[in-house]
Simulated scan of single mutants.
Amino acid sequence: MPDHDVAIVGGGPVGLLLACLLAHAGIDVAVYEKRSMGDARSRAIGIHPPGRAALDAVGLGEEARRQALELDGGDVLCSGEVLASVSFTSRQQVLILPQHRTHALLVERLAHVQPDAVHLGQVVRDVRDEGEVVRLSLEADGVGREVTASVVVAADGVRSGVRRLLGVRWRARRGSGSYAMADVADVEPSTRVRLYCEPGGIVESFPLPDGRRRWVVADPLDRLHDGAAFAREIQDRTGIRPGEATALEPTVFRAQQHRASRAAVGRIVLLGDALHETSPIGGQGMNLGWNAARRLAAAIERSLRSGTPDFGAYERSALRSAARAQRRSHFYMTMGRPVDGLSLGARNAVIRALGSPPLRRSAADLITMRGL
């Protein structure tokens, strides 16, 4: 008998969501996370309709809505002119909640359903599919041990050690760019996103709960490493001086896109960022992982009942959804690149068309991850 029905490597939001789904179904699950404490960084903030459905499935939907800010919609501007506006219907509703708060909700829910499921400070050194079980070699504080499970799920991020041990190829996809990001006090609180598609590159402005706002600036020259330069660039492109300008500590990051060639090898399955790196531009990564987690939970239940691992349908659907999301992200990034002359006029014409009455609803569906 294995030690656990399912072992999940990685205790981020996607791994925790899957653990909650399985625990709710009465499946014994263990989560092994290499960090010894929670991650307080505010990374993913948007909870799209697929993410809302996933949180509803584990009984967290209402609490997430209570803590979150609900977006009304968004506006796309260039040189002070509104090119397009969309408003969200109830089925398109997007919630804004910083990732560390979503993470805390999932940790609390899992602890309620299956206490002691999460094991922190655990580094996975090896994983071996032995036919009837999968054996994990773990190390904590210099001490090694082994555990077994009927199924192992790798939700250990873009640099997945499990994916590397399996020898699964990690292929680059179209879409990359450099950005700088910071969260500051909101001088004019609202419930709408503003995207400034300026000639010098996009500036994104997202409202956050508790009177905060996130600014994301395309940084193709990789020079926005300090608060003064970051604030000055926002002002130069948009005419707006963000709050707390002198105290900004921007996070500089490189957005890239990759996809694994396989989602499952025998009893070992890849999930979330271990399966696909999707640009955060468009806010799809976490929600894409949550959507796949719901499909994977159902596949795991079936496999445990039959005694035979069968993740073919999950693999096809997860890779197909990732491909769609990455195509959308590539489009968003293309729309936000520096541009001038005739190309600027052509780009703005595309944005106006997407915001026109015939296409506005479809554009809102695209933004809110319908069809994934």
Rank of each mutant, 00 (worst) to 15 (best):
R237K: 11
L110M: 10
G157C: 01
P115A: 09
L344C: 05
V82R: 14
R241Y: 09
V29D: 02
Y332P: 07
E249N: 15
G371M: 10
P49N: 04
E81K: 07
L195N: 14
P250R: 11
L17W: 06
S90G: 02
D310L: 09
A111R: 15
N348F: 14
A229E: 12
A318C: 05
R223I: 11
H100G: 07
D28I: 02
P357W: 07
P199I: 07
M181S: 15
E188M: 10
G285I: 01
A313L: 14
P309F: 09
P357S: 02
S362E: 14
H103C: 08
L21Y: 09
R41Y: 13
L359Y: 12
P358H: 03
P242C: 01
M333E: 08
P2K: 00
A23G: 06
P242K: 00
D365F: 12
I96G: 02
H103N: 13
P209K: 10
A40P: 15
A255S: 07
E139K: 03
L21E: 10
P189E: 02
A260H: 01
L354N: 00
Q235A: 14
T238M: 01
G283E: 06
G201H: 07
N291L: 15
R35C: 03
D56W: 05
R192M: 10
Q257W: 08
P2F: 01
R159T: 00
V124G: 08
D56L: 05
L208K: 00
N291M: 15
V124E: 11
H24S: 13
E244N: 10
S329L: 01
A322R: 05
P50N: 06
E301H: 11
A353V: 14
R35L: 12
R370S: 15
E315W: 04
I351V: 15
T308S: 02
T278D: 03
G243M: 00
A293T: 09
V151G: 06
A44K: 00
S176N: 11
V168F: 01
T246Y: 13
R241M: 14
G131W: 10
S321F: 13
C197E: 15
V6H: 10
L208F: 02
W215G: 01
L275E: 04
R305D: 12
G131R: 03
A313C: 01
R254I: 00
A172Y: 04
G371V: 11
S205G: 00
T278V: 15
L344M: 02
A57V: 03
D222Y: 12
A293K: 13
L296N: 11
R328G: 05
D5Y: 07
A111F: 13
G201F: 10
W290N: 11
H330F: 14
A7K: 08
M333N: 06
P98N: 04
A149G: 10
S317H: 13
S261N: 09
M333Y: 06
